[in-house]
Simulated scan of single mutants.
Amino acid sequence: MRQFFSALAKALACLLLLASAVAEATTVKVFYDVGWGNRIALRGSKAPLNWNTGVNATWSTGNVWTYTWADSVGDVELKPLINDATWSVGANYVVKAGTTVSIYPFFQSRAGTLVKVANFSSPQLGNTRTLRIYLPPSYSLNPLKRYPVLYMHDGQNLFEASTAFGGVEWQVDETANALINNGQMDEVIVVGIDNGGANRIYEYTPCCDPQYSGGGANVYERFMLDTVKPYIDQNYRTLTGNKNTALMGSSLGGLVSTYIGRRNPGVFSKLGGLSSSFWWNNQMLPKEVEAATAKVAVNHYIDAGTSSDGLTETTRMRDALVVDGYVQGKDLYYYVAQGAGHNEAAWAARLSIPLKYLFPWQSTVY
């Protein structure tokens, strides 16, 4: 009997050691179909990895390649390679000790693609428009991957000079391609929603400015939430949660982004407003933030130029957000564009700033 309990104690001790080892395992999972006969290897900054020779990851069903090491190694920078020869595109991945990190790489430096959905109907607004959808570089290369989504207003102005106001586009696709391939931002799907033409002021504004009237933002909100977002989530490989969903625009588009986003933090967690029209209706939106009794759980990017671009009102909004508890560089990024005016060229010139802030490299929540 004594021998039995001794053996049982040893067995339990082994199980505890095994459980401890599992609990103290740092793991990376690489999701990529390399094709028959190929493999994923990893190179990295600390042993058991190094930057000279790759270590093979272990394949499992679903084309998941896994590699594990002890927590005691500490934080590790690494990159996956195909057959220890072809490096993944972008920056190094950081794997913090004690975590399990999922990576969805791609291995060819390339541009994203633009898809257009013409005559997209809005039952809420009683009209149609075009959706212009930027699919990031890996979309066709890694079908295992799902993506955050950035919804942007004034879609005509974002991608093509031929449809942009004054013939000047934002160059959203070119800027995103460069930032993604350089490892400065995560891959995202960008959905450009064309404005309603003559109805633009109505659609992009809460009620009601003494001079311009407006007041259709709540209806436009329902169009976005009940029609546009469900369509995108059903037809593209999106990450649907609020942590991976952002809203951005300029001028009245910045106003409506802030208005809708703060009303729907369960849908959007990231808001971008370039040269936002915070003057609207005697600065109603900054006043609402000043009167708020609770902080809204969204990250704000707001900016303005110094040349007739609403800097005073934007600064007032910044100050109101700071009083509510937002912190510059954390959940708030306030930027002053020296010499910049209120136009597409100015917004294109600084677009990289909000993109890197809203979707920094390795920030996607899978």
Rank of each mutant, 00 (worst) to 15 (best):
P80Y: 12
A47I: 11
L18Q: 12
M224S: 15
F359R: 00
D226M: 15
P354R: 03
P123S: 05
I193M: 14
N235W: 12
L16W: 10
S72C: 06
V172C: 09
V76A: 01
V256F: 00
N264Y: 01
N157K: 06
L274V: 01
G44Q: 01
T61L: 11
A304M: 01
A7P: 00
G249H: 01
W279F: 06
G310K: 00
T315S: 09
C14G: 13
I302A: 03
Y326I: 08
W170H: 05
P137C: 04
D186Y: 00
Y104F: 13
L225T: 09
A9K: 07
E24C: 09
L16K: 12
L150I: 04
S140I: 09
K96M: 09
C207K: 14
T364A: 07
A320S: 04
R132Y: 04
R222N: 07
I133P: 06
I302T: 05
N92V: 10
R318F: 01
R39W: 13
G329L: 08
T61A: 14
W65I: 11
T53Q: 14
E288A: 12
T53Y: 12
S20N: 12
G90V: 03
V327G: 02
G272K: 03
T128Y: 05
S6G: 14
W170L: 05
G325Q: 08
P206V: 08
N282A: 12
R318S: 04
Q124C: 13
A97Q: 12
Q338H: 04
S88F: 07
G183I: 04
E344T: 05
L285N: 00
K229I: 15
Q156N: 02
Y334W: 08
K330R: 14
A57E: 03
L179V: 12
W87C: 14
R132I: 11
V298Y: 04
F4N: 10
N182G: 09
F268T: 05
V323D: 06
V73A: 07
N218G: 13
V73E: 01
A164T: 09
T163M: 02
T68R: 13
G197C: 11
D173N: 11
N142L: 07
A21G: 06
Q171P: 01
A57P: 03
